[in-house]
Design a binder for these strands. Sequence first.
DNA 1: CGATATTTGTTGCGCTTGACCCCAAATGGT
DNA 2: ACCATTTGGGGTCAAGCGCAACAAATATCG
Lengths: 401, 401
Amino acid sequence: MSDRNGSFDGVHRRNLARVLGLVHLEGPLSRARLTALTGLNRSTIAALAGELVDFGLVEERAPDPTNRVGRPSPVVAPHPALVAVAVNPEVDAVTLAAVGLGGRIAARRRIDVDGLVSPEEVARLTADAIDGWRSRELPDARFAGVGLAVPGLVRAADGLVRFAPHLEWRDAPVRAFVEEATGLPAAVGNDASLGAIAEHLFGAGRGVDDLVYLNGGASGIGGGLIVHGRPVGGTSGYAGEFGQNRPGIAASVDRRAEGGVLEDEVSRTRLLEAVGLRSADEPTLAAAIRDALAADGERGAAITDELDRQRRILATALANAVNVLNPSLVILGGFLATLADQEPEALRAAVAAQAMPAAAEDVDLVVAALGEDRLMIGAAEAAFASLLADPLAAAHPATVD
Amino acid sequence: MSDRNGSFDGVHRRNLARVLGLVHLEGPLSRARLTALTGLNRSTIAALAGELVDFGLVEERAPDPTNRVGRPSPVVAPHPALVAVAVNPEVDAVTLAAVGLGGRIAARRRIDVDGLVSPEEVARLTADAIDGWRSRELPDARFAGVGLAVPGLVRAADGLVRFAPHLEWRDAPVRAFVEEATGLPAAVGNDASLGAIAEHLFGAGRGVDDLVYLNGGASGIGGGLIVHGRPVGGTSGYAGEFGQNRPGIAASVDRRAEGGVLEDEVSRTRLLEAVGLRSADEPTLAAAIRDALAADGERGAAITDELDRQRRILATALANAVNVLNPSLVILGGFLATLADQEPEALRAAVAAQAMPAAAEDVDLVVAALGEDRLMIGAAEAAFASLLADPLAAAHPATVD
DNA sequence: CGATATTTGTTGCGCTTGACCCCAAATGGT
DNA sequence: ACCATTTGGGGTCAAGCGCAACAAATATCG
């Protein structure tokens, strides 16, 4: 009844996905607004919403009090019990969250680890977290799937982690481990790529169809692209590795690492060194930079020089990306946001000076908006992806009759 | 009757477009093959094909003699009378062609010009060419539209040529001029972007969904991207300007232009200088390079050095693109193909050495396949685009009843 | 406080489209 | 010459969405 290869039933599937997607991206919407946004008929929206309610994917609430004439329209909202599990294994901790549709964080836990976690441990920790949530914080939750944001190269075809240098994972079938341990479908993605998706859907890049996202982390510089409103994976899913690029360095005195790549030159470690810290989280580093800049004399000059140097090189890398992709937005996260925030206009001007004028006119440069939730939301998005693409297939995996 | 916003009629439109697109891309196909390729029902294919015949977009021929049992299936082929006009204004000449569906060149003419052509002259030459074809070579032709491949920045929104440095056009409304002069709908695109589309659909990139195309011309280095099987324009359509990038130059002795961009370093002019020519077409340059390499002594060493130098810099630029986009194919055209053909393995190795290993594994590096027809086919594709996207709307622009 | 206007949910009907079924046509093999 | 196989053609069927009429709920006006 539900699986028909014909393109007819495809209309229905697409419309279901469209309604669910709108509720997911825009938040709770009245049926009236859904008719306006989709262009579908009122009766069609009613039928689609009813179907999604039957599947347990959304719920219909009493109308919001609107101070306008006319019959109020029921509000279609993501079902609060439906969540995805987001997992981000890092060198010092594994962060997990239960994320509802619309990017709502329902629960979160951070598990500090001694030494490096293995893929098997991540699977176990994920299963434990789900058990904990099931029995305590979220007794009614229905878990749609697991999404993992991994700091490394992830092969899109099968979710294999080809290489995660800091975790020291190599060809790790973490997806299979997690699916085995939890009994849920799992999706694996590169952390920066998933961050780009999160910023695109819920952050600084909302509604922008062509953007470049660059994130500066302790491990280096990763990124993600959105083209035609869709995340770019490339053939195998490795796209977005800006950190491994070799941008032009106009003044050779700016070069620190001979034969090095972007993330050797524009690096968090070098910023930490310049302010005399050994390690710090992002707010601490930003504060330390502010303090150092305020200090007169040699200390202030040293950090100013280093910030300027890194900005010059980053600007060339960004200009290259702007020339090739002509995006309307560049989003900077992590320490790159700190770098940009110190002298936003200087960075914009440096990019504009090195990019084609026409492309430079189009592009805006902003810092990321989502903060620490970014990876959780991005990972959840990966977990929800199949459901959002085809709610009917996901709700009725194989209806016999 | 024909315009209904409902998603129902959308199925029909999509199916029509799918069938026409298949015949366009794959060449003449039997109805039986169309059913297999689309997954649609035989009766549906029959109806769709009949409709396209009625619109004059395709024709049905007697079945090809197939040495197989069973009733033979009529062949659906692009209608031979349906052509688009491709126009490529350049500094020395304006090249025009009448191109049928499937990339067939029905007629071609090259008009040498003294001095630079203006947009108005291009419009007039186009109208003249159409008149000539109508009255002589192609009396039965139906012209679907005009596509212009312009060596410059073209704003996608309205086809305005923002800046074409070698033609000395600035904010030239050439699309409007051509539409006025010919009475046909016109589309304008950047030459390299259209070349990328042509290579993707009919050349070295057939069936490849993620590719990077770089073309080396007299005016510099342009390019185009295909992502998710679709050409990437960016916000305004300026995407693909690799020539304006600043790639890393590992050895500072390799730098020729201080503060220069890729096309200042990797340049046709420098190759011509190295072989002692003032100007030459591509085969002549390639032959001159071969001769020079064969020569012993200083002359051979000089050209070897210059080729190696340009290849080193090009390799860095390609590696940057490979890191960011993880394409499965890089296509080189123009003098970049000549550069690659001299030492293909050296270039591949240099790219692989500078790109991420995982992304380098995925990518293949080839030279363009279409030669001088590339821009004509790409421009025709732009002219056919609206027809291919929605044959129904294009065939019945505004059916009153 | 009641009547009216406005907006929207609900229900039944009709249109369009593509799938399915059965028969006819064309071809190769026996 | 006959049969198996493949495919086109026409009629019928089911499904999905739009449309129109009616009902319900709310704000505004008198």
